[in-house]
């Protein structure tokens, strides 16, 4: 009887361990994202095999975001942390230290999308962190995310690869759709006045010239001299519309339009996606919204 009890105990323990191992194997990869765009890429590549936790949510300015103690805990328990990079997350080294680091779970997606544009700000040269406004960059980012997920969960690597391929094909179609939409706008009218300098990658890909009110970061406020010079430029260049951003105060834009006679072109999503109920809730929707708003206002 004693021997039977021991044997039964062993069988039960083995069954329990097997169940635990099976559950662990089927548990979705825990992915923490530091950008709304990366969250969307993660969902598209990972599907139901990942659980995406957004630290930077829609409507939050990523230039000014600071992680809370709760965010640090989320990072500590994550399998993969997706970082936008190119200097956007000024808090990153502190976050890595306070969350205990982690053997390579921080994935700098921005470093995998190719060379940065470099811009002048306050007499310094800075990296432009807004790489997601180039669809070519986002296609590379999809590859970085696919590889990171495959490394963290090799069993689902094939599923990640298939999803990444399908999503990349959609991005190709989106790029063509945007090129056709932009072609409706004569090249000499492709002059974009925006709240801050976030659209240089977009400008490079689609032939625009950018006249920003603020610098690369939303923290850099324009001087009255800068604004006066911009007003002169808008008048000289014959810019038809000035755009504001979803997370910026539109008052400066309104004042500039009054001074110049240009109209308010509409709201653009510069630093991330819109809220889930907005027309910019996904990356593809955000790009469509921005391009349609720009082209229709500048025509």
């Amino acid at each position: 009887m004693k021997r039977f009890s021991i044997l039964a105990g062993c069988v039960l323990a083995l069954a329990w361990a097997t169940t635990l191992a099976h559950a662990a194997a089927n548990a979705p990869l825990k992915v923490v994202s530091l950008s709304t765009v990366l969250s969307d890429l993660a969902r598209n590549v990972g599907g139901d095999k990942v659980q995406v936790i957004e630290l930077v949510k829609a409507g939050v300015d990523p230039h000014e975001f600071q992680p809370s103690p709760g965010d640090v805990q989320q990072v500590a328990g994550a399998d993969v942390v997706l970082v936008s990079g190119k200097g956007l997350e000024g808090y990153l080294s502190r976050l890595e230290q306070s969350s205990g680091g982690g053997s390579g779970k921080f994935v700098d997606v921005g470093s995998g999308v190719g060379p940065s544009l470099r811009l002048k700000e306050d007499k310094k040269t800075v990296e432009d962190p807004h790489w997601w406004h180039s669809i070519a960059n986002v296609k590379k980012a999809v590859g970085v995310v696919r590889d990171a997920f495959g490394k963290a969960d090799p069993a689902d690597g094939a599923a990640f690869a298939a999803a990444a391929t399908a999503y990349s094909a959609r991005l190709d179609a989106l790029d063509k759709e945007i090129k056709l939409k932009v072609a409706e706008l004569p090249r000499e009218k492709r002059k974009l006045v925006t709240s801050h300098d976030a659209f240089q990658y977009f400008a490079r890909d689609y032939g625009f010239r950018i006249y920003p009110i603020e610098g690369v970061s939303t923290e850099a406020q324009p001087s009255s001299k800068d604004v006066a010079e911009l007003i002169e430029t808008i008048k000289k260049q014959g810019v038809k519309a000035v755009f504001f951003e979803n997370i910026e105060n539109p008052k400066v834009v309104a004042a500039i339009t009054q001074e110049t006679g240009a109209k308010v072109g509409g709201e653009l999503y510069a630093d991330g996606l819109g809220a889930p109920d907005s027309d910019a809730a996904t990356y593809e929707a955000m790009m469509r919204h921005n391009v349609t708003t720009i082209v229709n206002a500048l025509k």
């Binding site: 014959g238 001074e259 110049t260 006679g261």
Partner: peptide, 10 residues
């Protein structure tokens, strides 16, 4: 101060 926008330099 508002003046009509015109493409002066183009």
């Amino acid at each position: 101060a508002a003046t009509p926008v015109a493409a002066e330099s183009t």
